[in-house]
Design a protein around this nucleic acid. Structure first.
Lengths: 246, 246
DNA sequence: CGGATACTTGAGGGTTGTCAAAATATGTGG
DNA sequence: CCACATATTTTGACAACCCTCAAGTATCCG
């Protein structure tokens, strides 16, 4: 993808997300769209930012999927969240200088880096934009809460169904999934396993269960939800925790 | 405890916490200490705020322990975080109007309610205070990340050890635990189970394992860490995620 | 076409859950 | 201070869930 186009698009997506949740004025919207940023591309598997780093810019996802993760001492990985275009997964680095986790490209990825200095300037000059960004980090925290519930108290099939429902909903918001319930889900089963805290083998078996129930199909990086009602019921999915409306 | 005293103390604890992480000026510190708030007391087991509520004030814990939790459809509970004096567990309600989870008194509790209007005023007038509060919510999110890692990828004994290490560290910061490693841990094993995503029976057995290893004792609501080195090694506990220093 | 990666399947073992009951601690009223 | 009711902790037996190891199959990519 063209770098200029990619930057323009990612800033538009961000502005759209912030407007949807915090009602930006035209003025505020154009400030977001005029952010300058250095665009970089990554290959699937690359670290974008690593635990311990002290970033000087925030990563705005332009295209592709990323994730936050942490490792245990003996090399087990836990994925903490998935990130889609329009997300700024390390926005917290503006106030928490040292990264307590890493950021990884799950697919080939293009990222626009918005300098901290610039974000500090606009948040100082525009308190409403500061609040919109703050709100965005609070929604992040809300998603963590939902994931904790899913990890601790949902069965494996419920948990997996929950992830599918969340991703579909979030993709819809940014226009990357439509009402036909077919969309790109371009990660490996191993990644899903690390997000659910399970082994890849068990994820594979859980997946077959959902398939044989006729709820979904997933192949070649494309996911189809065959029965949204049953899938979201199973997952006890209620999008309130995404705080999509102000 | 006297209500006035309790309010004064909770505001001091809050000011101290914010100063430690974000370096308040004397002026800013006194603004925090002059917040007006209605103090209320709760009994262990009371809901302070419930999922779906739209709060108009934020709950500042003055004395006792609280927790955030969510329930599944079939009545299973997941505790999402523990909250100690000086914490404002529902600070996010300032920007996310509807509660996506509930807040519960784990012990008898006194809470100072700071009106949203007042918080909006001081964050508008004092951007540095706004950032200090924002930072506090970002630390919250960081703790969620660490809990996700613990739930997904640590063994039950490691996970439990991790919780003990975290709580000890956080109690130290607010002066409720000292270098002798003995401190109040006034919750039930059932609560710990709901925080770890395990059954009470298994928590009990895990506890006996830690006891028989000579790492801790826990009885009558008092926890003693006998070997901090071994306990924190087992838990792979690294307090970086608490972001105690700016 | 060949090598690497990802997915699938099977077998067996460890961890954790459920159910039920006993033992202990806690709290309250007399 | 005791007696009782209640809540919490502890124990045992068994089943379900999930993990590991290992091998086989499919898919992707140069």
């Amino acid at each position: 993808m063209n770098t200029q186009l990619s930057l323009f698009q990612s800033l538009s997506t961000l502005a759209r997300k912030l407007d949807a949740s915090s009602h930006l004025t035209d003025d505020e919207e154009s400030i977001i769209k005029r952010l300058t940023a250095l665009t970089r591309t990554y290959s699937a598997g690359d670290d974008i930012v690593s635990e311990g780093d002290i970033p000087t810019a925030c990563a705005l996802i332009a295209e592709g999927w990323a994730c936050r993760y942490k490792m245990t001492g003996d090399g087990k990985r836990q994925i903490l969240s998935f990130h889609l275009p329009g997300d700024i997964p390390d926005l917290q680095s503006l106030l928490l200088s040292r990264m307590d986790h890493s950021l990884l490209a799950l697919t080939d990825l293009s990222v626009a880096f918005v300098p901290h200095a610039q974000l500090r300037d606009i948040t100082a000059a525009h308190p409403r934009l500061a609040r919109a960004l703050w709100r965005d980090t609070l929604v992040d925290a809300s998603i963590y809460r939902e994931w904790l519930l899913a990890m601790g108290r949902l069965s494996a099939p419920q948990h997996m169904a929950h992830i599918f429902c969340e991703i579909y909903t979030r993709l819809s918001v940014i226009g990357l999934a439509g009402p036909n319930l077919k969309f790109l889900f371009p990660i490996a089963q191993t990644d899903l396993a690390d997000a659910m805290g399970l082994s890849p083998v068990h994820v594979n078996r859980t997946l077959q269960e959902l398939r044989s129930l006729g709820l979904i199909s997933w192949a070649g990086g494309r996911l189809t939800i065959h029965d949204w009602g049953k899938l979201s019921d199973l997952a006890e999915f209620d999008p309130i925790y995404l705080h999509l409306a102000a």
